[in-house]
Amino acid sequence: MADLTLDGAMLIYRTPYHPALVAALKAAIPAAERRWDPARKAWLVAPSHGPALARITRQYLGQDVQVPLPVVAATPLETRFLDVRYLGTTKDRGDGGDRTAFAWIGGEWAAVFPEKVLRQWFGEEDLAPAGQAVPPPPQDTTLYAVLGIARGVDPDAVRKAYRRLARQWHPDVCREPGAHEMFIRVQRAYEVLGDAGKRARYDAGLALAAAAEDTRRRTREFAEQSAARWAALLADAVNGYRAPLRCGWLLAEGREVLGRFVVEKIVAWEDIVNEAGKVLVASWPAGSESPEERWVWV
């Protein structure tokens, strides 16, 4: 028998185990608005999805459940400090919503980052030249975004970001799949951005490329596309977006949903530093139950 009750601002949904029902539930309700609670052996679901749960229950269990009518107060927007020890790769949760990444905080997946929030923070900014209303290339990743820095940062910040990321993704330290490729990307980005002359040309190239993008949009020309480039974008589309940093002390705006903090905007992101001045880098080796932490000099 299925059971649907209200507990505060969330629905508690218990059913006998039914794989097809679970699949339907995951497809119908966005990942940020549902959560499996192993302690209660129940799904915690945002109240707005009551009718969907009733429909799924009727479809798979042939049972009618009463949908409780909650007194719903809008969850307030708040700013929180987050001690993120590992940030996953964004995934399509199969619910029709935006791709999201979960963040490991205090030993559990306690925060949710929509991909657009991460991309915005890690330099997927407007690439238009000053004074021109040219939209940025779609899904493009600049060398600045590879290093997770803004375009106007000074050379010291570029160097620091490079050293930080080289430590993060060095194959000897990071045991995640693709770490070597990420390390190479970081190296390539620094080869350009770490050299004042090359960086000036790259910035000029970005401005021209943004203008060319506008032209392409008008002529449907995709002159710069290459097999490797589009393969990379395709892989990104399939595999999700991987933020250059895996951990950090964050200040973020968001809302509490079912006990998780759903981030709407990252306000600040600082390295986690220990008493000795070493910086934390994290990776999640395949098969591990928790992230692997290492303290390194940057």
Partner: peptide, 18 residues
């Protein structure tokens, strides 16, 4: 565009050597 395509680079990266 040809050089960027051959090298798997973005246009902006190709422009570095222009």
């Amino acid at each position: 565009a040809d050089v960027a395509s051959q090298g798997g680079q973005s246009l902006a990266e190709a422009f570095v050597t222009a």
